[in-house]
Amino acid sequence: MPLEVTLIDHARDPLQKLYGAYRTCYTPKTPAEVWGEIRAGRITPEAIREFVAERLKTGHASPLEQVVFWFGVSGVSRALSHQLVRHRIGISFEQQSQRYVKYKEERLDYVMPRSWAKVPGMAAEYDRLMREITRVYEDALAKGIPAEDARFVLPNATPTNFQIMVNFAELLHIADLRLCWRAQWEIRHLVALMRREVAKAIPELGAYLQPKCGDRRLGYCDEPRKDWERCPLGKVRPHKEQLLEVFRAHRGGDVAPLDEAHLRVVEDAGNEE
């Protein structure tokens, strides 16, 4: 069963929602006045996009919680689900039940990591074990053991399905962590497909779904340096320690002055220490 992600729905007019939320914070006008201007067409779509783009460059994240996405996810492993549900703020899950859903196929479907197929003989061992688990599970059901108890033999490889509701602030956080090279391959693939769905529907927002080292996020890596050295993006993204070294040298007068953009990046890195 292949991993599939569908964007079921999203907040209507998300850029307007963001504009209204941000504008409320930075104007003496009431929300009714702000939205009156939006609905009357006095604020052009171009002005809305530009305003939101500028705000997205800042650290003002709370308005992002007012834009919500709904995803349908299928064909992911229970192992992935145990990682995904660790995201708890700004996200809601409805997951396929193993208590009420009985698996009746001739053999349980399952997710096999590619690493097993790369080691001679291990894919066959994996498959043999799954067949045996299937036999025991189906035998338990046939002999009257309730599905809620028969499921105790099911492995982490068993696929599961979700409907997910998540706001944009949390989706950015998930992308920060799960698109990183250090994330496990399956959840990285899942979030990449979620990003693709958002980018198709709302390109202006999808472009911000990056690993945290992305040019629209931190812009540098703050993971352990040994991991950064192994990461393919390490060739184009600096490590936090490098930026701090440059910043200290700059303060000491040992290097040429930094331009404003670079100075802001290294100051942000220094403030996180």
Rank of each mutant, 00 (worst) to 15 (best):
D222V: 02
A169S: 15
V101S: 14
G59N: 12
D227Q: 07
E245W: 03
M122C: 00
P45K: 10
W181P: 00
I133F: 11
L108V: 14
E204Q: 15
R225P: 00
A147L: 09
G75D: 11
H250F: 09
E50Q: 10
Q83Y: 02
H173G: 11
H262E: 09
D259Y: 01
V85G: 00
Q184A: 14
W181L: 02
A175T: 07
W228Y: 10
S62M: 10
L3D: 06
R55M: 08
G234V: 03
E273Y: 06
I89F: 05
T158D: 05
W185A: 13
I91H: 02
R78F: 02
T134N: 11
S77P: 09
K200C: 00
A47N: 10
V5D: 04
I202S: 15
G253F: 06
S77K: 04
Y22M: 08
W70A: 14
R248L: 03
S115L: 07
H10Q: 05
L141G: 12
T158K: 03
P31R: 09
D9K: 15
R237N: 01
R99M: 11
H60A: 06
K118H: 07
S62V: 14
R99N: 12
H189Y: 09
R195I: 11
G219H: 06
G72D: 13
R251P: 00
D227A: 07
R151S: 14
L18P: 01
S74A: 13
E267R: 05
H10M: 08
E273I: 09
P203E: 12
R12N: 12
H262P: 03
A117G: 04
N161I: 03
R264Q: 06
A169Q: 13
G90E: 08
L84P: 01
Q66E: 07
C25Q: 09
N161W: 13
E54H: 07
Y22K: 08
T6M: 08
K235M: 00
P211I: 04
Q163K: 15
G121I: 04
L172E: 10
S92R: 07
A249N: 03
L172P: 10
A21Y: 12
S77M: 06
K17A: 14
Y208K: 00
R248I: 01
Q83H: 08
Y100F: 13
Q184H: 11
Y22E: 11
E267T: 06
S92Q: 05
D139P: 02
M194H: 12
R225H: 04
Y220N: 01
D222Y: 00
G214D: 04
E170I: 11
E106Y: 11
A261T: 15
E204D: 15
G144P: 03
L84Q: 06
A261G: 06
P238Q: 05
V119M: 05
A256I: 01
G253W: 04
L209W: 07
V255I: 15
R39N: 12
F93P: 05
